[in-house]
Nucleic acid binder design. Structure first.
Lengths: 221, 221
DNA sequence: CAACTAATCAATAGACTAATTGAACAGGGT
DNA sequence: ACCCTGTTCAATTAGTCTATTGATTAGTTG
């Protein structure tokens, strides 16, 4: 039947969207973009590729409808085309993490001995913030991502600046650090550095995108 | 930093799972498998490929952890490795459908003038079944999929047999037909044939997997 | 045990695809 | 005009992907 051709074409189109995510670099880009829009040059820096190459990857994502752009002056800002795109990435990593032992192993390599310490759940942190509990929330992401949205009351200290800005932190409050998500190393590193310096510190489960997706308050101030 | 290599390896691993879905034929396989386990030969028939080729595609899915197998006698039955795999396919098609105009166009080509008639919502059908409302639920999928699980009280009439089995249907009850999901043509065709024959017929929104994922009762009797 | 069935494997042809780089180009800002 | 940021192009290199064929393994049946 002619149906076969039509059906194939339709499912190939779905495959196109999957193909856009069939590259580690493009997934990294989506992971960063889940934290807010960024211009190409910044994205290139984040994933460690040339601007030209990053631009190519972004075109692939755009043609698959996963990201859109906004021109501001001379720069072009990319962002996820819809919240479902983050959802797609979230489900993808869930499936991969639960099905591929390899992911577990590589995550441990990259993030360090994972979960040596239980992370703080979103629910718990939300409750403590609501109750005015004494806790310092630390945003370990780059300043631009903090500016695009962050946890209420969070202090922005990009991971690279943490060591020389330790003095800014009060020693008597527990620190809860967060970053881009479960596969971002910033918060892990921050916690390690803080504990080494004698602070009481823990990591938040997930990152800002997960916090926002859970419907919790995001501050833009 | 050495971090880059570790990070790349980790995200490449996520990409592996996406790559498994980066083929229209493999997505078709997942779509069928969401309706219950099937042996290789049956799957080959469904997607219109040779058994050997189908087996190859299934290996790709298995290595990505999306499906698992069970040997029964001489045949090997494949099934989705976890409910999240269906969820992944569901989100993927949602993203693709809302972002790619092309999908809309191709879906119309394959399924025919889509939604000439509003489909019955799951909620509405569930209520009518609960209330003992007069409705005939018709399962247009192959008998094997019906056997693997179906809507409560549904009558199994595979689309290919419908025309010569019209006499079995009572003329005084509305017929609600369903199949594998929103991109399966069986229910569309069934409704067209039924209406042509003078029946009052509508399509259920989504198919069995969506019904099950919504937590509604699935009968195996 | 031989014959048979279902599925997988191995090898391969052929056709594409993908990632990347550097240079040229375009749009907007100063 | 000239600079900046991105995009596009052309070219290179290195695969990858699909589908096919024929051989092979695992399990069943007479």
């Amino acid at each position: 039947m002619a149906d076969r051709a039509a059906k194939s074409a339709l499912f190939d189109e779905f495959a196109r969207a999957a193909k856009a995510l069939a590259s580690g670099r493009r997934i990294e880009l989506v992971d960063v973009l889940a934290n807010g829009e960024r211009p190409v040059e910044a994205l290139a820096g984040e994933v460690g590729l040339s601007v030209a190459n990053t631009s190519q990857h972004l075109q692939v994502l755009r043609q698959a409808g996963l990201v859109t752009t906004r021109r501001q002056g001379t720069s072009v800002h990319y962002r996820l085309a819809a919240p479902e795109v983050f959802e797609l990435w979230r489900v993808l990593r869930t499936v991969a993490a639960s099905r591929l032992a390899e992911v577990e192993r590589l995550a441990a390599t990259y993030l360090g001995a994972r979960d040596e310490l239980e992370p703080v759940t979103r629910q718990e942190l939300a409750r403590r913030l609501r109750d005015g509990d004494s806790v310092l929330v630390l945003d370990a992401r780059p300043a631009a991502e903090h500016a695009a949205g962050h946890l209420p009351g969070a202090v922005s200290i990009p991971i690279g600046e943490l060591r020389r800005r330790l003095a800014e932190l009060p020693g008597d409050r527990e620190v809860v650090a967060y970053c881009r998500g479960p596969y971002c190393a910033f918060a892990h590193k921050a916690v390690a550095e803080l504990r080494e310096a004698g602070f009481q510190a823990r990591r938040l489960e997930g990152g800002l995108p997960e916090w926002a997706a859970a419907g919790l308050a995001v501050s833009h101030a």
